[in-house]
Design a protein around this nucleic acid. Sequence first.
DNA 1: CGCGGTGTTGAAAATTGTCAATAATTGTGG
DNA 2: CCACAATTATTGACAATTTTCAACACCGCG
Lengths: 245, 245
Amino acid sequence: MDMRLNIPTELNIACSKCLQYSQCMPTGLNEYETLRMDSLVTQRVRIKKGNDLYRNNFSDKSMYIVRAGCFKTVISQHDGRDQVVGFHMSGESLGLGVEQSNGANCKISALEDSVVCVIPFVKVEELANATNDLHSHIRHLFRVEIKRENSVMLFLGSMNSEERVATFLLNLSLSHEARGFSGTNINLKMSRYDIASYLGIKHETVSRTLAKFIKGNLINLNLRLLKIVNFKALHSIANDGILVD
Amino acid sequence: MDMRLNIPTELNIACSKCLQYSQCMPTGLNEYETLRMDSLVTQRVRIKKGNDLYRNNFSDKSMYIVRAGCFKTVISQHDGRDQVVGFHMSGESLGLGVEQSNGANCKISALEDSVVCVIPFVKVEELANATNDLHSHIRHLFRVEIKRENSVMLFLGSMNSEERVATFLLNLSLSHEARGFSGTNINLKMSRYDIASYLGIKHETVSRTLAKFIKGNLINLNLRLLKIVNFKALHSIANDGILVD
DNA sequence: CGCGGTGTTGAAAATTGTCAATAATTGTGG
DNA sequence: CCACAATTATTGACAATTTTCAACACCGCG
């Protein structure tokens, strides 16, 4: 039983004691600086599955880090069409590109019961004197987000549906492994519709492509329980089009 | 004759005297702060048409602003396929998401003879004490970049080719107007191949779609000389899927 | 003046989307 | 806890869009 499954529901833990610390806070700080970092996160918010990080919660005066759970970022167009532009797991930043005024167009929804850490930028400014590389760390987080979006544009702009799905599965596997979970047996948090929107194809095409992978013995799949059987074959389909590092 | 066409070739102008100042520097500064901003840009670099902002020029220790000209950002995949993920005009930031190590995968090329301003992040840190909102301004620039990428993902993920091309033309028009140029008569700096890659379709499809718009009297087009005739029709095709503000 | 890169257009092929029917699963309220 | 409804997922047949392949025209530049 993986203890990590329980820990994140605790709302009052200090950053310095958090298992995700290395993912979202600057490294190489001395003890004093590390302790000061604890004051950065002013609160943690529970978001129930299906609910949005939005309105009362969400503001462009703060940044957010996923402490536990999983989110999707969705852009809504005037005509009602939605586009999923990202999925976000623990340790990842949320909504860096979204401004308050944009709230109506862009929403961030929890795919399962989740917890986010809130870091107001005024706190960042306050602490920047004490810790020189805090600002550059924030810039780093922005850069990571931009790189992530670049990789999304890559498959949206230049891959066929098999390449898109294979790339999606492999990226998912990598990001699960980076969090200490199995990269082989994965419990998908998102629907086929979400995957389809994210990949810029229709959900029927996602189903068909997954069915093809199952037939070819590349994966096993039962509803949202995924098992990757043949990584090598998936890689050759994805053409190694993987940018996550 | 528009004077702006000449001014940007001057390399030694102070930021406080630059016509693009309001686009790339924080607003609301007092005179003293404004003058200090002048020391932010340590150099300006000319890049000839077809050359890259890269290698000796490019580093993740600095950020870059287009002073004059036009650039494209291209991600290269392992198999040689390229994906244009953005075009950048004067006043816009360059390469915020790109790290040095990524140099081989991502390049930024000048579409015409251009000039960029170089702002080392160490200068930003230095000046941050004197000007409180400099850091938040830098974050603003990152946020603008992320929003831009979101709008790219929107058409890549959810639009057919007519919608993509119409959206592209209208965004181009808006960004030209924002710079004081005509939003009706536009001189395209990029090839059909670049447009195609950016829009995630083939160049033949771009040609055909443009031909269709010409037949329908939505635009005039002679090679790279574009005239938008019927904005309303283009808007209704694009479904107002325009995110630039 | 010719050559390489760029741009246009046509016809056929391939991929993906659309529509529809059905099954399985989850959520909800009595 | 069951039954019903709503959502999610799969699959097939057909339609539509986009790509592919090919031929040709055109500019611009040495």
